[in-house]
Write a protein that binds this DNA or RNA. Structure first.
Length: 569
DNA sequence: GCCGTTTTCGGCCCGACTGTTTTCAGTCG
């Protein structure tokens, strides 16, 4: 089960969607959506808060606070239950079909008596859309296509997949003579953990050659002089927007988003009698262009510091930028080492020697090898193998300028214990401890399990704390507040696992953990030399959690790191 | 429904594209 904040955010989102379907004041629906985001990103726990306290959350006023308080007391929201009964079943599902919004989904549901996507597909194929007002032959085609897309894994793609596709297209577009600038923007530039569609921005006087070249990368969905959308072979939508070079900064700011961040910046513009669009920042009355060439100029003219893309989620960054308090975020180049990697002694694919050589190529000051411990039985680890690896690692120390650390990735048992006793663990320079089994323990047990691991004086880092696999397995149920307090109290770092399948600890928990006093380790969890290159995804995730280098132990110099790893005072 | 250093009422981000509706609504981002 999700946290109370997430649960309420989900209910408020549903309420907003139902309001959109019923029509009426669109600003009401928008407000519920805004409140949902706000509650979901609220660093405190809403459980037990009364109306007065709830109203301190931005976007939560008297009415929404009352609904949340009602949820706190009764576990339900009567107004939501009521709205659910008024809307035909399945309309919300129908709006999940791309191209089908709330209005037309409701109309189809009522006119055709269809309540799920399968029934809709059948009705369209049976020609039941004929004669419906507003639905022509193209509509049928679009809806059927939308249903196909929905079914073919409507899921978002992982960050590395999207980055690869975007980079290929950007590199190709840059080869065209007409292209003046080209980069990816959108959620990819913000390092969101998964990507729904890729936004590419280019500057050119004549957009047609770019649009033509871009169209060859997939099936064209829409195409005009400023925007072309395609769908690639692996079902990823990619949008190319072409602007004039003069508008580059405003366009980059606009298309990087998020939408919520853009709303917030535009509201600031409005208050200053300005108008912000992808074409520039204008005087609202005279329409005179003020600035548009760079993002920095646009933010500056709004009275804001430049906001790093990873922070642009309307989670307080606009207010921070107005106060001039944008943190110096941790960057990949700040990382002095990698503290969680595997070799072919367990499930890695590269040898110890190859992993060390590849890591040296990253310019690290230190590097830890942390193969799996014996309780992950399929890895067949033994004391002897581990000690032999340590010996070999010490021999290799003379071959590299990096300081080599011998470590292991321990398994946190259901009771919170780990693989080896204190004496054996004392032989390691660094111990990562992770949950690899019994993912469905009840919340209280799982929480005790993690806390006991933190309290182990030989455990330095909790690996991939939620154990989620993006798109495949959800997070374990744990009281994150308790976990964060335990990690801070015991001097145990939480990992930000940089694997694109994990990105764990997720960014939405990172700020709360940091506020609790937790330190972090950004680790590749590499099982190959190539995986050592996953660090940018971890750094991006850390940036989304507003972390600075000081928050991240593997940006520290070796001596400071060693002091942290001593843990026992 | 929320919000306020021009407002406790009257705003609320803004533009592109599509299809079919001869002037615009729906959808998307």
């Amino acid at each position: 089960m999700a946290s109370a904040n997430e649960a309420v955010a989900g209910l408020l989102t549903e309420y907003a969607e139902l309001l959109q379907i019923t029509g009426g004041d669109p600003f009401r629906a928008r407000n519920y959506q805004k409140a949902a985001r706000s509650v979901g990103g609220w660093s405190g726990d809403i459980t037990g808060l009364d109306v007065k306290a709830l109203k301190a959350i931005p976007g939560v006023g008297t009415s929404i606070a009352a609904k949340i308080a009602e949820y706190n007391e009764t576990g339900t929201i009567a107004a939501l239950e009521d709205l659910r009964t008024k809307i035909p079943a399945g309309v919300r599902d129908l709006t999940k079909v791309p191209g089908l919004g709330p209005k037309r989904a409701l109309l189809l549901s009522q006119q055709l008596d269809v309540h799920d996507i399968d029934a809709l597909a059948e009705a369209v194929r049976a020609g039941k859309l004929d004669g419906l007002p507003g639905f022509g032959p193209k509509s049928e085609e679009r809806i059927l296509h939308g249903i196909e897309v929905y079914r073919q894994g409507h899921d978002r793609v992982l960050l590395d997949v999207a980055l690869r596709i975007a980079t290929t297209m950007v590199d190709h577009l840059k080869t065209l003579q007409e292209t003046q600038r080209c980069t990816y923007a959108g959620s990819l530039r913000r390092w969101r953990e998964t990507i729904g569609d890729v936004d590419i921005l280019a500057a050119a006087e004549d957009s047609k050659p770019l649009m033509d070249a871009f169209s060859t990368f997939g099936d064209v969905i829409v195409s005009g002089p400023t925007k072309t959308s395609i769908r690639t072979g692996n079902n990823l939508q990619v949008d190319l927007r072409v602007v004039k070079l003069d508008a580059w900064g405003a366009a980059l700011q606009y298309f990087t988003g998020s939408q919520a961040h853009n709303v917030a910046t535009r509201q600031i513009a409005v208050r200053k009698k300005l108008k912000l669009s992808e074409y520039g920042l204008f005087d609202a009355e005279t329409d005179e262009l003020i600035v548009s060439r760079t993002e920095e100029e646009v933010y500056e003219r709004l009275g804001l510091r430049w906001v790093p893309p990873a922070m642009r989620e309307d989670r307080g960054e606009v207010e921070a930028a107005a106060r001039g308090e944008i943190p110096q975020l941790v960057r990949v180049k700040d990382l002095n080492g990698d503290l969680h990697t595997h070799t072919n002694l367990t499930d890695g694919v590269a040898s110890l020697e190859d992993m060390i050589a590849a890591a040296a190529g990253k310019g690290y000051e230190y590097y830890a090898v942390t193969d799996h411990a014996p309780n992950l039985v399929m890895q067949r680890m033994t004391d002897e193998k581990m000690l032999a690896q340590r010996e070999r690692l010490r021999e290799l120390a003379g071959t590299t300028s990096m300081t080599l650390l011998h470590g292991t990735e321990l398994n946190i048992a259901p009771d919170g214990s780990v693989d080896w006793d204190e004496d054996f663990l004392a032989g390691f320079d660094v111990c990562v401890a992770s949950v690899h089994s019994h993912f469905d323990q009840p919340r209280a047990e799982m929480t005790r399990r993690f806390i006991r691991a933190c309290e182990n004086p030989r455990v330095h880092i909790i690996g991939h704390p939620t154990t989620r696999r993006l798109g495949k397995r959800g997070p374990v149920e744990v009281d994150f507040g308790e976990l964060f307090r335990a990690a801070a109290r015991t001097g145990t770092a939480l990992e930000i696992n940089a694997s694109p399948q994990r990105l764990d600890l997720p960014s939405e928990h990172i700020r709360a953990a940091r506020d609790a006093g937790v330190k972090f380790a950004i680790n590749s969890d590499a099982h190959s030399t190539v995986n050592l290159g996953n660090m940018p995804y971890g750094a991006g995730t850390a940036q989304r959690g507003w972390l600075t280098p000081d928050d991240v132990i593997n940006t520290w110099p070796l001596e400071r790191l060693r002091a942290f790893l001593r843990k026992i005072p």
